[in-house]
Design a protein around this nucleic acid. Structure first.
Lengths: 252, 252
DNA sequence: GCCTATCAAAGTGCATGCAATTCCTGCGCA
DNA sequence: TGCGCAGGAATTGCATGCACTTTGATAGGC
């Protein structure tokens, strides 16, 4: 349909990438907080695979910087430092600059519609601290990257956007996604006009406004059980595609 | 010694990362040409590990874009398209721009010495088509990235530099590394002077001059046996650190 | 009461085994 | 000579098993 080619840079087979996607979502929606333990056994049990597969998935996520792996130790959700966050945003701005340069004035009608639809979805899922709206805000940028049709750019922007999302959950107060949504709309408009410079400055200030926040101490929630947390994500992983809200599922 | 921190972004344990390093070198030195098959068994046999580990290493390399993995198929060394190459260089220029910005005028004496030593090594290993000199030229950029102390930047620059190196082996005629070496020296000088703009333009034209070449048809060499090709790399992997020239080893 | 040694439980590191799939070689046929 | 097609060899997909490491709780010494 949309010209979205070759996105799978790695993503071995099926099972592994399914688990990766599920965990990625669980992490950026903060169902799994930074520091949360991810034992191979539990993961395997939850997703109905052996440790081997769970392990492989953890390896991938570690390569993406979402998970920390230390020899002989339980894998944990990554806890990026403040400096990491700064670096990540620096890199991100450069990468998104490339995206903008390639896209300005070159969006097809279908793509414009897709972008608008996405922002509409953001609008619907509003509510600053709602994890789903945070995910959607991040995925707006990933959607843009996809439209460049450059596998490398897609991968890097996706990765770093997820990482930034993760760090935000650590360092930022619940961000009012309302303004972010308006900024997204402005970016689309400028992209359509082909006003590259305008988009650049919009994107820059957009990312800055998202990044430049006060620091809030992280509160690790140890109480809930991993198996419970992952239940909705595992369900979705088994049956078909992305469910809109994770709390919707919850069967067995 | 040198201020080179936290480089292991993923790199699971020991064995896996050792194999990754060995394969990475074999690939960028063109001992393994694009399209070369990498069966798990052979890899495991060559490096004295089980398929499990070899498989994991292949997964990592696939995530880095050096290896292509398709379900139920033998892994092969990646064969980037021409468009991939262009995209990669675009991204690379942006990333190296960040490196330069962070480093201009801020190099320590030790770092300057290290850079000079590296270029001296390039000089010694001269000879345009010598795979080792190609590797060293690539690693100059990676060395620069390391000096930023930004794990993200280090990882991305390393990855993309290797990928560019791989694409060059496909699309570029044997590049006279002599000029590259001089350009490297000029970059060091400008970095030391802190002349950011100068470094930027140097780096830009440097990468352009490396990237902008005519297209040569790839000639897949099917003859040699994987086990033979990898012999020197496996040896080095077992015993200690980087050997200067791969053909040096070759024991059993 | 507090610190430390010890030991079982939990978890990872890695190899191996079996099933399923792909590959490839040789054969029949046009 | 060229082409399709079987069937065995090669190879991957995945689970499981065992050894080793870490963890954390408990008991003993100070």
């Amino acid at each position: 349909m949309a010209p979205r080619a070759a996105s799978k840079t790695a993503e071995t087979s099926d099972k592994v990438s399914v688990i990766c996607r599920a965990l990625r979502r669980a992490i950026i929606e903060q169902a799994l907080e930074p520091g949360a333990k991810l034992p191979e056994d539990s993961l395997g049990e939850r997703f109905g695979v052996s440790r081997t597969i769970a392990r492989h998935a953890l390896g991938q996520l570690a390569a993406e910087g979402l998970v920390e792996l230390r020899r002989n130790r339980i894998a944990v959700v990554a806890t990026p430092s403040w400096q990491d966050a700064r670096d990540a945003f620096d890199v991100r701005i450069q990468l998104e600059r490339l995206v903008v340069r390639q896209l300005a004035g070159k969006l097809t009608k279908a793509q414009i519609a897709e972008l608008n639809a996405h922002v509409d979805a953001e609008d619907r899922a509003r509510g600053g601290s709602d994890p789903v709206s945070i995910r959607l805000a991040t995925e707006f940028h990933i959607l843009l990257a996809h439209m460049t049709n450059s596998p490398i750019l897609i991968r890097y922007v996706s990765e770093i956007a997820y990482r930034c999302c993760l760090t935000l959950s650590l360092f930022s107060r619940p961000h009012s996604s309302e303004c972010a949504i308006n900024e997204h709309r402005a970016i689309i408009a400028a992209l359509v006009r082909g006003d590259e410079n305008k988009v650049m400055s919009l994107m820059h200030s957009h990312l800055d406004s998202v990044a430049g926040r006060a620091l809030v101490a992280p509160v690790p929630q140890r109480g809930r059980d991993l198996l419970d947390i992952l239940a909705p994500y595992a369900e979705e992983a088994e049956s078909g595609r992305v469910v809109k809200l994770p709390k919707a599922a919850r069967g067995r």
